[in-house]
C-alpha cells in the first residue's frame, strides 16, 4: 500500500531481468500445455493463467505503462471476447447440421490427423477458446486495475499541484 510516507517501491533489477527472461519461455510453456492438453496434463484453463502470469509479471516489473506497450496485454479484453465467440462457434455450429449442441468432430473412433502430440480435433479448438477467455480475463482485469491506479495517481498529482501541499483527499 503506497502512502505518502513510503517512497514508491522500485522493482529490483533481478525482477526486471527475471520478468524479461521468463516472458518467452512462459508463453512457450503455456502454449505447450494448451496444445498437448488433450494428450497430457494441462488444459486451456491452466495455460491461460500461466500465459497471463508472465504478462502480468512485465507489468509488475516495469510498471503499468509497459502493459500498454505489449500488444497481447493491450488486446486482452478483446481476446477474451474472441475466445467466447470461438467457443460458441464450436458449440452451436453443429446444431445447424442437426447434431446436438457441442458435438465434436471428428466423431468417435474416426481417424484424426496428428502433428506430434497435437491433434486436429474440435475439442482442441474449444480448449483454445477457453485459453483465450481465461487469459483475456486475467490480463484484462489486471490491466484495468493498473489503468485505474494510474488515473488515480494522476488525479492525486493534479490535486497536490492545485492545493500546493501534499495531501490525501
Amino acid at each position: 500500500m503506497m502512502t505518502e510516507q513510503t517512497p514508491p517501491v522500485v522493482p529490483h533489477g533481478m525482477i526486471k531481468t527475471g520478468a524479461r527472461v521468463f516472458l518467452v519461455p512462459g508463453w512457450v510453456l503455456a502454449l505447450a500445455i494448451l496444445l498437448k492438453g488433450y494428450a497430457d496434463i494441462g488444459d486451456g484453463f491452466a495455460a491461460g493463467v500461466i500465459a497471463a502470469l508472465v504478462v502480468v509479471l512485465q507489468g509488475i516489473a516495469f510498471g503499468a505503462e509497459e502493459l500498454e506497450r505489449i500488444w497481447v496485454a493491450r488486446m486482452a479484453p478483446v481476446m477474451s471476447l474472441i475466445g467466447l465467440l470461438l467457443a460458441y462457434t464450436v458449440a452451436f455450429v453443429p446444431t445447424f447440421f442437426g447434431y446436438p449442441i457441442l458435438t465434436h468432430f471428428p466423431r468417435m473412433n474416426h481417424h484424426v490427423i496428428h502433428f506430434g502430440p497435437l491433434e486436429f480435433i474440435t475439442p482442441v479448438v474449444f480448449d483454445i477458446a477457453v485459453f483465450l477467455v481465461v487469459y483475456g480475463f486475467c490480463v484484462g482485469a489486471m490491466l484495468t486495475l493498473a489503468r485505474a491506479e494510474v488515473r488515480h495517481q494522476r488525479v492525486l498529482q493534479r490535486l497536490r499541484r492545485q492545493t500546493g501541499k501534499r495531501g490525501n483527499p
Binding site: 482442441v124 477457453v130 477467455v133 480475463f137
Partner: peptide
C-alpha cells in the same frame, strides 16, 4: 481421441458446463 481424462471431461463430456463457466468469466471481465 484424448489421453487425458480431465481435459476430455472439460472440453467434451461436460463441455456445456465449461461453456457456461467461460461465459461467466467473460461477463465478469
Amino acid at each position: 481421441h484424448a489421453r487425458n481424462v480431465v481435459t476430455a471431461i472439460l472440453a467434451d463430456f461436460r463441455g456445456f458446463d465449461t461453456m457456461g463457466e467461460i461465459t461467466v468469466i467473460a461477463i465478469t471481465l
